[in-house]
Design a binder for these strands. Structure first.
Lengths: 150, 150
DNA sequence: TCAGCATGGTTTCATCTGCAACGATTTGTT
DNA sequence: AACAAATCGTTGCAGATGAAACCATGCTGA
């Protein structure tokens, strides 16, 4: 059986839009939580997530692991700093580089919020059959390999 | 075997980000084409796509079939109008409603560009195994049902 | 009829975003 | 050492975006 992606021109031309819509909808469901409770954007939450699970990270680590570009990291980190959730310091080894750490308050807020975000994600994923979840994970992994921003 | 989505906390917490990244990367590959060649945004291309394959559509049809909201439709249509690719008229039956049509120039440009966009999409999809493509399609369809912006 | 209410489309405003420029720092080359 | 090139982080700016306000039109019920 040939993949039905190819049966109609309409389907695959529209696929990227459906993908974007699904992605946006999923994200939106989660941002609800930390947007409402802490006033954090997606990017800010992402950095907080990474930093809460590490003692410290450099800007390079952050940019790489968050898949945000340097401007996004800079702006999100600035706002987290202003909110007192992280601190930014200049690296001793290379004064161009910043080192970021969670403040105790940042850790506390993260630990408070993380289960709630998790619960939201689970609520959606639980509503899918295991088969569908597996397909989703598999499909997205494959797509990521292929759609790399060359 | 339990779905490995659940094996690590990290993985599913990051799933929405991976989804967003994959979605963005895929889209970017396609926007390249009509962005560079015609200066069209994603939304504009989407409307042009729908209109090129129909004699005319009302704003309601467009909003529904494009999954754009009314503001996005209004702005994209305005720009397409300014570029001479479509025309907007007031409906005779209901003067609140707009009726959109492609101009001959719009049709021409679309027919010129569409194969190139298609080719880009195919290039990525061809790089995936049929099995992966099927999984992707299946997973996204399931996700869309679940993640509806309620 | 006409007074409300609903609907469609546009505009406004405040914010976000991407890109390019910039200053500071480091690295590489001679 | 000294200059050029590369790297990192920030900022300025111009365009995009989302939410709400707004205006015009249509509908409904007294």
């Amino acid at each position: 059986m040939l993949n039905y992606l190819w049966q109609s021109m309409q389907l695959d031309s529209f696929f990227p839009y459906r993908l974007a819509v699904a992605s946006e909808a999923f994200s939106r469901n989660l941002t609800d939580v930390y947007e409402r409770e802490l006033g954090l954007s997606r990017e800010e939450w992402r950095l907080l997530f990474l930093l809460a699970n590490a003692k410290s990270m450099t800007s390079l680590d952050l940019a790489h692991r968050s898949t945000l570009d340097k401007v996004q990291v800079s702006r999100a980190a600035k706002r987290l700093d202003e909110k007192g959730l992280i601190v930014r310091e200049i690296s001793d080894e290379d004064r161009r580089i910043r080192v970021y750490r969670c403040t105790p308050e940042g850790v506390r807020q993260f630990q408070h919020l993380e289960p709630k975000v998790q619960e939201r994600a689970n609520r959606m994923l639980d509503a899918m059959s295991p088969e569908d979840r597996e397909a989703l994970e598999k499909g997205i992994s494959a797509l990521m390999k292929v759609a790399k921003t060359n």
